[in-house]
Nucleic acid binder design. Structure first.
Lengths: 142, 142
DNA sequence: CATTGACTTAGAGCGCACTCGAACTCGTAG
DNA sequence: CTACGAGTTCGAGTGCGCTCTAAGTCAATG
């Protein structure tokens, strides 16, 4: 598969795929006789996993560490596992932090709901249930 | 209180506080007779709330919208509430997304944990070895 | 009176993660 | 043969959110 198709299938742009290869996040791809990258479908699995790491806030320099260990292959499994475990803890902490903020947000909104009832009555209120934000990326809460 | 103390108490740097004032995230502070900012303790509540918004991923331009409504004061409550409700939905979506990634991470880690379990990383490794001498840093050519 | 240290401003610089432009080469369709 | 579209490289540009520098002012202390 060529870069255009990989772009379509991975959700990255061709520019970003080349950028990732340049910095070492994606392995150097085979070129066909006219120097065009030719990808194996298996790269999609790796790109998808990189996407998870990115979604969970792992900076590129850490992904590079992981990618380098993966390239090295044999013997690096314990270190890769350790890195993922550290990252998992960070993600858990982040979720906890977000949940805490959610409570504050709820309180604040409840405060406005009371004030709104006094001043403006409630008419814009229902909109919050129907008026979902336009699709951003993937899963939706609740 | 002067900017240094506010910095200490808020966790921001004096630089950041001035920056926030410049862009309108913090109200223009009163100056004493030698042009130094003099803060009321109440600003801490606002800074703390801004911190929550930031922690939950609200971009500055949206905080500015909220801050502007707040400056306007009376009558803007329904809009402020609506904005917070939209934001709350995004935070919930983000948490859901992180939780989904957490499952993937758990699975991956479990794969590493099992003795002699190399799963799909092994295949990917074989593939990259088969390819060119994958230069992990800058790829040049020509 | 000199020094210290906290403050002031305008504006430049930085780290991150892309994102895009320019100029070029190929392979194929008409 | 020519045009087109998809690819190639190098390197510059972008948007975000700070972060820092330079040059100067000011009040209090030794």
């Amino acid at each position: 598969m060529k870069i255009g198709e990989l772009a379509r299938r991975s959700g990255l742009t061709a520019h970003t795929i080349r950028y990732y290869e340049r910095i070492g996040l994606l392995p150097y791809a085979d070129r066909d006789r006219s120097s065009q990258r030719d990808y194996d479908a298996s790269i999609l699995t790796w790109i998808e996993f990189l996407g998870r790491l990115k979604t969970t806030g792992m900076p590129i320099r850490e992904m590079l560490r992981y990618a380098a260990l993966r390239e090295q292959g044999a013997g690096t499994e314990p270190e890769r596992r350790a890195q993922l475990e550290r990252h998992r803890e960070q993600v858990r902490a982040r979720i906890a932090e977000l949940n805490a903020c959610l409570l504050v947000l709820d309180t604040k909104i409840a405060g406005y709901a009371g004030a709104g009832n006094r001043i403006e009555d409630y008419d814009a209120y229902q909109r919050s249930r129907r008026n979902q934000p336009a699709r951003t990326r993937q899963a939706r809460a609740r």
